[in-house]
Design a binder for these strands. Structure first.
Length: 515
RNA sequence: GCGCCCAUAGCUCAGCCGGUAGAGCAAUCGCCUUUUAAGCGACAGGUCGCAGGUUCGAGCCCUGCUGGGCGCACCA
């Protein structure tokens, strides 16, 4: 990778051109350009019936291809809408020709001229006026594209190094315009969710990112320090506990879309900061939430992708509601015959070792963790089509309300699609004494070495003591949702600037303080 | 955290059994006024990720380090 401070001979050549431009009073960095058409609009403005006298258009964009033939130059200009060919002719441009000779690939230009169709058949701008808008002093790592007769586009060479693509995301997008489509869909997904909730009387709120205590999930936090207060603060791992405080306060229906932060490993499905959607609705239970999630997902898929059936990694997924519902206990029993509520832990452990899990790791499992492992090795892999898994054992869910029909269970569901969890919801626990007891249990696990167990949030318990109405709530991982909808297998591909180690070692000394 | 793999020109890559480094494209210069992976000719471009080691000799073998990818673990 080229160091940001070093210059290659290619860059020196561009700086030399910059100097030559300035010598003839052409500014390499203009202030604005009044365009009349986007590239795609200009192409639509062409009509073969007009013969050679097409409409005059002004377009602005980056030079994505440049083919000089001496006294003529063909180029392709690329803007947000696509690309259009430009035809520069020395006779036509007269004095401006000296600028054309100093253009490089990647420069931003504005051109105007009439449309015509070349001998080869491509609708092209017959450039009459050209302005340099921004000189590019560093060549983009672009490949060459070839459009085959059948319309397919083939890329020759190009930016393929994954490290360089994530580190220089700006170059990645500049060279791979099709990647931007993922983020258009991402924006539509979030806009749809917001409209969906607004329409149902939910209030969008913002709760603290910096928190004196963290909670609402099982995860290790990032820590930082407040100077004036002289105290450690945590970056939130979930929005849950603050949103439920707002339910106590009488807001009744609230939601938040924001970043959570978890200090854990990074891989294809985990980025240290990620986008979470959570909503809470007073006087609703988890079945009310389930029906809303179903409506949200099917509506979103229909609107953002057009249609309810989509192929993902070769599997046809059908988002037509209603989605299958299966209980955690019965689902596992159907798949492997185990009844996790009555089976002894030893039976569960031997099931796991039978599935190839290392005996040492299995021996360390107990309680909720053990049940979770059994689930992952039995029911979860079978959940390809959208499926709600309901009624998780109590040990797995310290913030969920006990099941009204079975005290061993909680009223909780998770939504799975294509083997991944998309949503996690419950009838919220609102008995303050029960909540305190479960926190205390978490603290014991914490003392026993589980760094991801909850802290005791006494202020939250106090809020519950004032009385939180029956409430249903849900958390939806937006990044994974976007991964599903755009068929991306890495979370990095749906995050604009995914987390990376700093380049080289020269930044290492400035690493942030650990709380 | 563990395992496997990768790092050579601006980009994409080759480099055999260890013998002082190569191609295409991009750049630069010349020719070319409807090309489109334009074409033809010329000329440049390298601390082979970094540091040690083995060797008469290392891009290639060994060790360590850095960065990255994949898998596992962690991750409700």
């Amino acid at each position: 990778m080229t160091d940001p401070g070093e210059r290659t001979y290619v860059e020196e050549a561009r700086r030399d051109k910059r100097a030559r431009l300035e010598a003839i009073a052409i500014t390499p960095f203009a202030y604005r350009y009044a365009r009349t058409h986007l590239a795609a609009e200009a192409l639509l403005a062409w009509d073969d019936a007009l013969g050679d006298h097409g409409p005059t258009v002004s377009v602005a964009g980056r030079l994505a291809a440049l083919r000089s033939q001496g006294k003529t130059v063909f180029a392709h200009l690329e803007d947000v809408s696509g690309r259009i060919q430009l035809y520069f002719k020395r006779d036509v441009l007269a004095a401006a020709w000296s600028l054309v000779e100093l253009l490089d690939l990647d420069d931003h230009v504005g051109v105007s001229g009439r449309l015509f169709r070349t001998r080869a058949g491509e609708v092209t701008i017959w450039v009459e006026r050209v302005e340099l808008l921004t000189k590019s002093l560093r060549p983009l790592p672009r490949g060459k594209t070839e459009t085959l007769p059948d319309g397919r586009t083939v890329l020759h060479g190009g930016l393929t190094d994954p490290e360089l693509r994530y580190r220089q995301r700006y170059a990645d997008f500049a060279v791979h315009p099709e990647l931007r489509q993922i983020f258009r869909i991402r924006a539509r997904v979030i806009a749809f969710a917001r409209r969906f909730l607004d329409d149902r009387g939910f209030l969008e709120v913002e709760t603290p990112v910096l928190q004196p205590l963290y909670g609402g999930a099982a995860a290790r936090p990032f820590t930082t320090r407040h100077r004036a207060l002289d105290m450690p603060l945590y970056l939130r791992i979930a929005d849950e506990l603050y949103l439920k405080r707002l339910i106590v306060g009488g807001f009744e229906r609230v939601y938040e879309i924001g970043h959570d932060f978890r200090n854990e490993g990074m891989d294809r499905t985990h980025n240290p900061e990620f986008t979470m959607l959570e909503w809470y609705q007073a006087y609703a239970d988890y079945i009310d939430v389930l029906e809303m999630v179903q409506e949200l997902l099917s509506g979103m898929v229909q609107e953002c992708l057009g249609g309810l059936q989509h192929e993902r990694h070769g599997v046809r997924l059908d988002f037509t509601p209603p989605y299958r519902r299966v209980s955690f206990v019965a689902g596992i029993r159907e798949v492997c015959g185990l009844d996790v509520l009555t089976a002894s832990e030893d039976v569960l452990r031997s099931f796991l070792t039978g599935r190839g899990e290392p005996p040492d790791a299995v021996r360390a499992l107990s309680g909720g963790r053990l049940l979770d492992e059994v689930f992952k090795h039995s029911l979860e892999p079978t959940l390809v089509q959208p499926t709600f898994v309901l009624d998780y054992p109590k040990a797995l869910s310290p913030l969920a309300k006990p099941h009204r029909d079975d005290a061993r269970l909680t009223e909780r569901f998770e939504l799975f699609v294509n083997g991944t969890e998309l949503a996690n919801a419950f009838s919220e626990l609102n008995d303050p004494d029960d909540q305190r007891a479960r926190f205390e249990d978490q603290v014991r696990q914490r003392d026993a070495g589980d760094e991801e167990a909850h802290q005791l949030d006494a202020d939250y318990v106090r809020a519950l003591e004032y009385g939180m109405p029956p409430t249903g709530g849900v958390g939806i991982g937006v990044d994974r949702l976007v991964m599903l909808l755009t068929d991306q297998s890495s979370i990095r591909d749906v995050i604009l600037f995914p987390a990376m180690r700093p380049e080289g070692d020269r930044h290492r000394a400035t690493a942030a303080d650990e709380g």
